[in-house]
Design a protein around this nucleic acid. Structure first.
Length: 809
DNA sequence: ATAGGGTTAG
């Protein structure tokens, strides 16, 4: 603990912003953040690039105008004879290219160069362009480029590199084509940037063409160029060819080995990567970073942790990237202790704590559930208006700041702190925080997860205003949000309006129908998608199959499962297979489901047996449940959900002794049932309830309402399914216990606070229990309300005493 | 002037 306190003390010092000697930032990288960020598909990676108009741009208007002389003491190169001035300016340019940090400094030098008639020279102009690209001011570099009377290879190279580095691949390609068109020959310095573009866009064909051209024209090659070619093939998935180029290389340096190491890890060949790692003649920080991150990405977290410890033991120093990776690892594994140790190391090391690292730190605390520490880190994130360094702007336009908001919001949401998430939302709007399409997507996902319909709508409107509506990922996330917030109608509206040809987009609509149990609609959308020649992917089939299973469409489900393999050549994944187990189980074909598990080699997976187990619950098949749980026990000994399920199955069959045996077992092992929690949104507030909760300020009203309501339900025929309670206690007591399940409290709260006829929407963090399900059906009948309940698996729409799930969940 | 390694979400 001493460690953490110490860490905070130093963090406060480190994190303090550096004194800002120069004026506020000019146009700088604003451009990068206002363009709609590209997403995964090749087509969308091509981003439109707008050149700042003169009024937007604060860079010198023209090269011959009276530019202001440098008015900063100590920075003024303008003194002495013109020759002397030129020489000193030249030196300044050279020095600055090593340490350029902000746009204002570059602009001062530019102004001086203009005044001396110096900027029109190829060499100086190229230097200045390079400076502008380094500080992330691409539009100024481009403008200067346009004004230069003559250009050489270096001039073109600087500009191409600038755009490719910032993720404007299409502009880089255009420039490259123009360069060739004007007869300027690219050299070994130009081409790595071009290959980087092809690699990022995963355009194997295009890059191959350039490679062929290069071989035919015998461009002088060097390590850097060769490395970029190896990396290009590796990123495009042609590992064989990457290896061939690697083997044929005359010299290899650290980067060459790291590129190949990355290639192994990218394709998920963990043993191959370790072999290669051992063969590598010298390892640097990047090798370790790559190894740790790669192992983490490949799901072998234990190995990644081992690598991290090994790295420390061998005395390798940490780079900022190491900190990001290590913190991500600690977060993924929920190892708060480790995370704090890394935090200490970060504070002690003299690494500059940039936005990325700070976000990783915050995310680690979020993932470890320590929201207090996370929010302290959050408060240290530089706010908008501050200069954003070029390197801090990611190729998709997101910055440390935009990421930090979405990270924090989702942190609160995933830790069940809806009220805090809610407050943060309000702050976000009040402060007008900068958001890019990616963070909007993230925030929308947080809304989906928490069921924040009103906030989701607000952010949807916000996204439209910001012009992000055309972003495929965002609009898919919006559909998903409306689906998960229970407003299928809004999802349909967005879906119809956007008319996208992206698979993701269609898949999210299928998923929305699936979670609402509308199997027929999901199938209709799927068929429409096929008619439009949009090729479904694995995820589309996951949605479709689960839709079939939720709606009990056994035949259709099986048909599409075959179609997936036979017509689309997609290998079924674990998710598909468990969907089929679910499908068979729901149909009561329990033996077939068990056979299917073995035939498809998924008997080693807990999820498969859990699917069978929940089918057993529905069919009250005690023997099969016993069998499934015996298989499950060694696989997931600590899974509270399945033990609760099993205990309930026994209880349902009135085998109380067996049931309580499992309950005891849980107690002995220290496994605690995840507390059931429900929440409801009313006006501008969110109300959360846990079973038996009395902390709500209006608890008396809620309980007295339930006291009056339940007898009315009983008159209508409701029988409390008292067998769903754990304990073998007296019937009456069990009844009381059940009446206060969190969903009943939340629904009662909703009914009290809304006018007659308003639908009540409630979210729950566990599966709804049998008793509540029956009770809510009667509540909908007695009150004439539509009740929409979301549990972890799907939506239940209760209306006129019936549920949309057909009692099949 | 050029190449490799990073955070968030699902």
């Amino acid at each position: 603990m001493r460690c953490a306190a110490e860490a905070w003390a130093v963090v406060r010092a480190v994190v303090r912003p550096p004194p800002n000697r120069l004026n506020p930032p000019p146009c700088s990288s604003r451009l990068l953040t206002t363009d709609a960020p590209p997403r995964a598909t090749t087509a969308s990676l091509i981003r439109p690039y707008r050149i700042c108009t003169a009024s937007q741009s604060r860079c010198p208007q023209t090269l011959v105008a009276d530019a202001p002389a440098g008015d900063h003491p100590g920075r003024t190169p303008c003194s002495g004879t013109p020759q002397k001035q030129r020489r000193s300016l030249g030196n300044l340019l050279k020095n600055m290219s090593r340490s350029a940090r902000n746009v204002a400094e570059v602009e001062i030098v530019h102004s001086s160069a203009v005044k001396l008639g110096f900027a029109r020279q190829v060499l100086a102009g190229t230097h200045l362009m390079s400076l502008y690209t380094k500080v992330g001011c691409l539009d100024s570099a481009h403008k200067l480029f346009g004004e230069m009377p003559s250009r050489n290879t270096a001039t073109w190279t600087v500009l191409i590199t600038g755009f490719s580095g910032a993720g404007f691949y299409s502009v880089a390609f255009d420039l490259f084509a123009q360069m060739l068109h004007e007869g300027v020959f690219p050299n070994h310095v130009t081409l790595p940037s071009v290959f980087k573009c092809y690699a990022s866009m995963e355009d194997l064909g295009g890059g191959k063409e350039v490679h062929g051209w290069l071989l035919r024209n015998v461009v002088r090659s060097d390590v850097v160029l060769d490395n970029s070619i190896v990396d290009f093939y590796a990123k495009c998935g042609d590992l064989v060819y990457a290896g061939r180029v690697f083997d044929s290389m005359a010299d290899r340096d650290n980067v060459s080995w790291n590129v190949m190491l990355g290639a192994y890890l990218r394709v998920g060949d963990v043993p191959g990567s370790i072999e290669f790692f051992k063969r590598s003649p010298s390892l640097d920080v990047a090798s370790w970073n790559m190894m740790i991150n790669g192992q983490m990405q490949n799901g072998v977290h234990g190995m990644a942790l081992e690598s991290l410890y090994q790295m420390v033991e061998l005395g390798s120093s940490f780079s900022p990237i190491t900190f990001s990776v290590a913190l991500a690892l600690a977060g993924t594994l929920s190892l708060l202790e480790l995370g704090m140790q890394i935090h200490c190391k970060l504070v002690r090391s003299e690494t500059y704590v940039d936005g990325f690292v700070r976000n990783s730190l915050m995310d680690m605390y979020c993932k470890c559930g320590d929201m207090e520490s996370a929010s302290i880190v959050f408060s240290k994130v530089p706010c908008s208006g501050r200069k954003v360094r070029a390197s801090a702007v990611r190729s998709d336009g997101s910055t440390a700041e935009t990421v930090s908001w979405s990270c924090m919001v989702s942190g609160y949401v995933h830790n069940g702190r809806h009220v805090d998430a809610f407050k943060l939302f309000r702050r976000l709007f009040r402060e007008g925080a900068a958001v890019d399409a990616f963070s909007v997507t993230n925030i929308i996902s947080a809304c989906s997860y928490a069921g924040f319909l009103a906030q989701g709508k607000q952010i949807h409107a916000c996204a439209e205003k910001l012009g992000y509506a055309s972003d495929v990922y965002l609009s898919s996330a919006i559909i998903d949000m409306y689906g998960k917030c229970g407003s299928l109608h809004d999802a349909e509206v967005v879906f119809r309006k956007a008319e996208s040809w992206s698979v993701v987009f269609w898949t999210s609509m299928i998923g929305a129908y699936a979670s609402h149990g509308q199997g027929r609609e999901a199938i209709r959308i799927f068929e429409m998608m096929l008619d439009k020649n949009i090729r479904p992917n694995e995820i589309s089939f996951v949605g479709l199959l689960s839709a079939c299973s939720h709606a009990g469409l056994i035949g259709e489900g099986y048909k599409y499962f075959r179609l997936m393999k036979e017509e689309f050549g997609l290998a079924p994944t674990v998710q598909h297979l468990t969907c089929v187990v679910d499908l068979l189980g729901r149909a009561g074909l329990l033996h077939e489901a068990r056979a299917f598990i073995y035939e498809n080699g998924i008997a080693y997976l807990g999820v498969a047996w859990k699917a069978l187990l929940s089918a057993c619950r529905f069919h009250k098949a005690v023997d099969m449940a016993k069998f499934a749980s015996e298989q499950l026990a060694p696989l997931e000994p600590c899974d509270s959900g399945s033990l609760v399920l099993l205990s309930n199955i026994y209880s349902t069959a009135n085998q109380w002794v067996q049931g309580s045996r499992f309950r005891r077992m849980m107690q002995e092992k220290g496994i605690r049932k995840q507390p059931g929690m429900s929440w409801i949104h009313l006006g501008n507030e969110v109300h959360t309830f846990v079973a038996g909760d009395r902390s709500h300020p209006q608890m008396d009203r809620i309980y007295s309402y339930l006291y009056r309501l339940i007898p009315r339900l009983k008159e209508m025929g409701y029988q409390s399914a008292t067998n769903m309670v754990f304990h073998d206690v007296e019937v009456e007591e069990r009844e009381i216990f059940l009446s206060y399940h969190s969903e009943k409290l939340a629904i009662a709260c909703g009914i009290i606070h809304t006018p007659c006829g308003t639908p009540v929407r409630v979210m729950k963090n566990l599966r709804v229990c049998d008793d509540c399900h029956v009770a809510i059906k009667y509540i909908s009948l007695a009150t004439g309300r539509d009740i929409i309940l979301r549990d972890t698996h799907r939506f239940h729409h209760f209306r006129h005493g019936k549920c949309s799930c057909g009692d099949y969940w």
